[in-house]
């Protein structure tokens, strides 16, 4: 394809996308989410310095059947991954002959709140660390096991299991620790940077177009509080970095590597954008 036709192409696609996005708009639903007797916070006042007044869970932008599937912890297929995570938790792996349980005992106790506070500052690496990286750190340093490759099914299952122990708890990360603030700054810059042939920034959809339809998808604020999330599209639970990479690929940009500095900065910033929302892991989305 010649450069001129690529440019014409992109303009056409962007134009069409804009048209499609502008064609329909709907309010998020007015509904409450309770899971196993725990009231989920799906609307919260936005933290200081946030572009919105209110942060909203992606749950509010989904069809009734999708919302019902998340509300029923039994029907929620994401819980299969959580159960698998529970098995992995108890499985001994590595030369040290340990399982997660060897040090952390009962996850329901020891992991409570953990999922709501990641990503965290890691002094040893001088970078933020998310749940997946923390799990790998534990595997290597304490279990003498191999770190998981990105999106290994057990990595996803274990992250879902650990984060699920914080179900209902409000997301709150600590930006004062280490150099988290500078990573937040970098993440914010990434969030607002247009990229790819389609020239979209995260903000193009998840800030400027919240409530609009992009084809038939009802655009949400793009929050991270439900990850790892069960996506109907994939028929399984998927990780946050998988989703971030996918979104970026759809702008027709090169995908950054999972856990790269750019994506870690973005994770810090995007997690902050959902401050106050309950952890919903495993959320159910389209």
């Amino acid at each position: 394809m010649s450069t001129r036709s690529i440019a014409a192409w992109s303009a056409l696609c962007a134009g069409v996308a804009a048209l499609a996005a502008g064609a329909a708009w709907a309010d998020p639903v007015d509904d409450e989410l309770e899971i196993d007797g725990v009231e989920m916070v799906i609307r919260a006042p936005a933290p200081e310095g946030h572009p919105f007044d209110e942060v909203l869970s992606g749950w509010l932008f989904r069809e009734a059947e999708t919302r019902a599937t998340e509300a029923d912890s039994f029907a929620n297929p994401g819980m299969l991954a959580v159960e698998r995570g529970a098995e992995v938790w108890d499985t001994v792996e590595g030369a040290a002959g340990k399982s997660c349980a060897s040090c952390h005992n009962d996850a329901a106790q020891s992991m409570q709140g953990v999922g709501a506070r990641f990503p965290k500052w890691d002094a040893a690496s001088g970078k933020p660390v998310n749940l997946e990286l923390q799990i790998n750190k534990c595997r290597v340093e304490n279990m003498e096991a191999e770190p998981y490759k990105f999106d290994h099914p057990d990595q996803v299952a274990l992250a879902a299991y650990v984060k699920h122990q914080s179900l209902g708890m409000p997301v709150k990360i600590d930006l004062a620790e280490g150099e988290m603030q500078s990573w937040w700054d970098k993440g914010k810059e990434n969030y607002y940077t247009r990229m790819g042939q389609l020239n979209f920034a995260c903000a193009s959809c998840h800030e400027a177009s919240v409530g609009k339809y992009i084809r038939a998808d009802h655009l949400s604020q793009g929050q991270a509080n439900g990850f790892p999330t069960y996506r109907f599209r994939d028929g399984k639970v998927i990780s946050l970095h998988d989703r971030l990479r996918g979104c970026i690929k759809d702008t027709r940009a090169e995908m950054p590597d999972a856990f790269s500095d750019d994506l870690m900065a973005l994770e810090v910033y995007v997690t902050w954008r959902g401050t106050g929302l309950s952890v919903e892991t495993p959320a159910v989305r389209q």
Partner: peptide, 11 residues
């Protein structure tokens, strides 16, 4: 899936 199919039943 690397793990064997797992049933989950509520009765």
């Amino acid at each position: 899936m690397s793990a064997a199919p797992k049933p989950r039943v509520k009765v």
